[in-house]
Design a protein around this nucleic acid. Structure first.
Lengths: 190, 190
DNA sequence: GTATCACCATGACAACTGTCATGCGATCGA
DNA sequence: TCGATCGCATGACAGTTGTCATGGTGATAC
């Protein structure tokens, strides 16, 4: 429904024509090959082929098509990878709806459109402080697995599991495993 | 942006007029009081006031306005609570975009519009076994609040708080507060 | 008017959780 | 090749969490 609604939003503009809309990255890629649009508007997290891979493949095979990423995720890591893949724009879904048509026009003129707040964050973004072990254990603990279950399935002592959690809790300035998991998830680290 | 796009989608239809669109439940409630629309389309999880509370208050004060819930969550618990609050329809965002205008028209005719798959689940769905106290405490504990914090802010002894959690854990067949909160959230009980 | 039920409330106790001191091996720059 | 650093691993200990037995209150049913 949301995809259909966004298509409707763009169709209203007289200088924009919507050639089609597709449920996953693979279908979109096929369609770009057939229709050769000026602009492709794509999400990042999609079934079958991610928006990042889609961008890279479209830019390589059909360089006349410019790609505008439209996504919910305000993650500097995604922005960086999108630009590296050759995207011309990165717009967040929580911006007012007027900005979409505007961004499409600017990308069509050859401009690069990047959410300003995100662009500034890309330099100052905190890096994930968790080690692999800590991340895995925190994720599973955050889903309700007990210390004992974790210790058994990872072949660690319970003390060790608790210690990783303790580390994670302190790195994230949380007061227990629950809060730590919530914080890490919010930052996109789990 | 998605709200704007959905508004655009409805505006295209000649027999539907969009009177406004609002960022949270409180603003929507104010606007309903002023504009008295035939139909209010609302999400459930919104800032400031949930769609369920919004529905109940709108139905009570302005019964001529019918409410259509439009949400991502295919949870029988939400559906049941929406209908109890007086909603005339419950539509999922992953349906094709054509269904929205259709649902609005049917609600306006006085029909009740409910996603069929979800409607069948509602009968087999378990009822929320939690008491009010249990629900509030489980929700906050699931966000990482400690027993001590809860006891202080609710003026209960720590033992009492732990007891509510213990009750909730056992009712939900969970093994700790984290899992209990996750289960309850999934069922739409928090 | 009293039996029953659901909800609210508490403390004692055992079990679990978070912290800290400690140690091991791998890697890396000096 | 040495010392420093990092990630992984452990157990002891204090503090927190979950369970259980118990009792209070008000609403409804008989």
């Amino acid at each position: 429904m949301l995809r259909g609604a966004l298509a409707a939003l763009l169709s209203i503009e007289h200088d924009i024509e919507v050639l089609g809309s597709f449920a996953d990255g693979e279908q979109a890629f096929q369609a770009v090959g057939k229709r050769r649009p000026e602009i492709l508007v794509a999400d990042i997290e999609m079934p079958k082929m991610s928006g990042l891979e889609l961008t890279a493949r479209v830019r390589e095979l059909y360089p006349e098509t410019r790609v505008l990423i439209l996504t919910t995720f305000a993650r500097p890591g995604y922005l960086r990878r999108a630009l590296e893949a050759g995207a011309s724009g990165y717009l967040l879904k929580d911006r007012p709806s007027e900005e979409l048509a505007d961004a499409v026009r600017r990308v069509s003129r050859g401009e690069r459109v990047v959410d300003p707040q995100l662009a500034s964050q890309i330099w100052s973004a905190e890096k994930d402080p968790l080690t692999d072990r800590e991340r895995v254990i925190l994720r599973r603990a955050g889903d309700g697995e007990t210390t004992a279950e974790l210790a058994r399935s990872l072949r660690l002592s319970e003390g060790t599991v608790r210690n990783y959690l303790s580390e994670a809790i302190s790195k994230l300035h949380a007061s227990n495993r629950i809060e730590a998991a919530r914080i890490a998830r919010n930052k996109g680290w789990l």
